[in-house]
Structures are given as C-alpha cells and as structure tokens.
Amino acid sequence: MRIRLNIEKHLRADKREFHLDLQLQSDAEVTVLFAPSGSGKTLSLLSIAGLLKPERGLIEINGRILFDSQRRIDLPTRLRRIGLVFQDYALFPHLSVSENIAYARRAGWFPHRRGAANLIGDLLDTFALGEFADSYPQQLSGGQRQRVALARALAAQPELLLLDEPFAALDAPLRARMRVELAALRARFDIPMIVITHDPDDIAALGGQVIQLDAGKVVGT
C-alpha cells in the first residue's frame, strides 16, 4: 500500500488557529501517526476519508488520486473505498448490531458467498457478535462496540482502514486484548491500516511505519 499526502488546511475557532501542513509518504501495510492530542492526527484522517477538504494539496492511495487541488479532483467519501472507525465508534444507537453492520454493507467481500445476508452473518461470526446481533450499542461493552464498528467498516469493502485512537476508550486489560485482536484482524483480511495514537504501547503491538506529528507537521519517522 502506497500512501502519499501533501495537504494544507487552516482552521480557526474563536481565538484559536491551527495550520495543518502535512507531507508524508508510506509504503507500509500499517502506518501509525503518533502524536500528542491537538497535533492534527484526526484532521489528517478526516482529510483522507473525504470528510474534511484541504485548501490545497494532494492525497494519493496506491496511485489513485483522491484529492488534487490543482486538477480540481475531490472524490466524495462514498467513492474513496476507505473505512473509518472513530474514537467513540459512532454507532447508531437506534440500530441493532446487525443493522449497524448492514448500514455499510456491499456484497462481495467474501466472493465465495452470495448475498448481503451471508456477508453480515460472516462478519458477525468473525467478530464473535452472533449472540448480540439483535442487541443495541448501549447494551454492549466497550470491546464489543469496537468490534461492531470494525465490522461495519469492513462491510463496505474498503481498500484502506483508518482507525482514530482505537483503544483510547478502553481500560488497560481490554486495550491489551484488543491490540492483539486488531493485529490478527489485519492479517486475516490483509487490509492496510492507518492508525493514529498517542500511546507507545500501540506502536509496539501494531508495528509498521511510525510517523511522528507535532503542531500539524511531520517531525520524525
């Protein structure tokens, strides 16, 4: 997976200003953006996913241009083939587990099976969520909600998975377990990931290329 970013975005809120000036390239299957809070990590993911439009620059994934300000290319989110898991998981509280996963479904992730129902069943099994298929997010533990969010992201058949502080909302024992599960998930689905974190333990567990950010810029690799 080759990722190339060269983007700028200036934001103002009240009396505060922030300038994102991000230039990075990675050929790793797992790219970790490591930085303290307020360094522009989440803004970077939102830009890649198409939820935040840079003022200028380029976003290229595996040779496919998602954004190019000079050529006036700005693919909508639904065409970028990117899955995004938010820090708070952003599950729909009025939808059951199976309905949350189905919301993003697109048949074909498992080419040997047919139909969206089979796809959702496979994902429920993969994430050990079968017995919770009719439960609602507020009835689940933190680890279960994270699994639902991951299953929903994978149901859309992304070419790249973006994870925003995936373990931040979990207690220490569950964080350790979910790090192992996420590494196994990446190997099983063979899907590249960009993970943002401020926790060195995440880096040790996930490996890959580490890119350090500070104040909206790359300061180390």
Rank of each mutant, 00 (worst) to 15 (best):
M1E: 15
I7H: 09
I7S: 11
A13G: 15
D14L: 14
K15G: 15
E17W: 09
Q23S: 15
D27L: 12
D27T: 14
E29N: 14
L33W: 13
P36G: 10
S39H: 01
G40Y: 09
L46E: 13
I48M: 11
L51S: 13
K53A: 12
R56F: 08
R56A: 12
L58F: 04
R64C: 08
R64T: 14
I65L: 13
R71Y: 12
R72Q: 12
I82K: 03
G83F: 04
V85I: 10
V85P: 12
Y89A: 04
V97L: 03
S98K: 11
E99H: 06
N100R: 02
G108Y: 02
G108W: 01
P111G: 03
A116P: 14
A116H: 11
I120S: 05
G121W: 00
G121F: 00
D122W: 10
L124V: 00
T126C: 00
F127C: 08
F127H: 07
L129Y: 04
F132Y: 11
F132T: 02
S135F: 10
Q138D: 15
Q144G: 03
R145W: 00
R152F: 02
A153P: 03
L163Q: 10
E165K: 00
E165F: 02
P166Y: 04
A168K: 08
A169L: 06
D171C: 05
A172T: 13
P173T: 12
M178S: 04
R179M: 06
R179I: 03
E181K: 06
A184N: 14
L185G: 12
F189Q: 14
I191C: 08
I191Q: 08
H198V: 00
D201H: 09
I203H: 09
G207P: 09
G207L: 01
Q212N: 10
G216Q: 00
